[in-house]
Design a protein around this nucleic acid. Structure first.
Lengths: 107, 107
DNA sequence: CTGACTCATAACCAATGAGTAATATATTTA
DNA sequence: TAAATATATTACTCATTGGTTATGAGTCAG
């Protein structure tokens, strides 16, 4: 029952977590320490959020010594983009139908 | 602190609620009764979800006698589409930069 | 007017989840 | 080896929320 959309929406619904993901998208790969500075929460909280983001396939990590470098995973947002476009598309189509109907009635 | 993206993601994060919105997008305007049939939950639950969707600007309602007709609100998904495109765009840009760098190194 | 019908609201319960402090693990440095 | 550093994990608390049943408010039919 719990499809890809579910995981994506749930993961991005939390503002702290979404902010972390945004920073990674804007600024590229960063360590947990760097991300913790600026996030308004503790280091364990950041670690947990990164774990959730990783589980959702939104980020990947690379271990280097005692530091963990996280970066956004390209393509992870595609299902979200698809879903949104599809939903918007349904309305568009119905709007076209309505316009067609009105045009036909206008004749 | 709680911006439009927050409301949209939080609202769409619940699968039951997202399913209701999807049905409205696919099939167009429907009454609460019609929506309750098929949603796996009680009528009050559906009403509450519709209230949240309405609060988020994702749907609108129209009263007709004792029935409430709900329909998706066009344009409500635009901020979501924008955000997703923007995030995907950041990676794109960085990817281009990387390619440029590799090309320059190749010379 | 009365009873049936449609939907919203109220009151409550159980589960989820985001946060914390404390601690464990692993790596670098002195 | 011992201390310091970087991150993950554990155990816990607290607020939020999605679900329920019961009921209220409004509308239509007999």
């Amino acid at each position: 029952m719990s499809d890809a959309h579910d995981v994506l929406f749930k993961t991005l619904a939390d503002p702290t977590r979404r902010a972390l993901f945004e920073r990674l998208c804007r600024e590229g790969e960063q360590t947990v320490g760097s991300l913790t500075a600026g996030a308004g929460v503790s280091q364990p909280a950041v670690s947990k959020h990164l774990g959730v983001l990783k589980q959702a396939g939104l980020v990947q990590d690379r271990q280097q010594g005692r530091q963990a470098h996280y970066s956004p995973r390209p393509g992870a947002l595609v299902p979200l983009l698809d879903w949104t476009s599809e939903m918007a598309g349904f309305w568009e189509r119905r709007f076209d139908d309505l316009e067609d109907l009105l045009k036909r009635m206008d004749q």
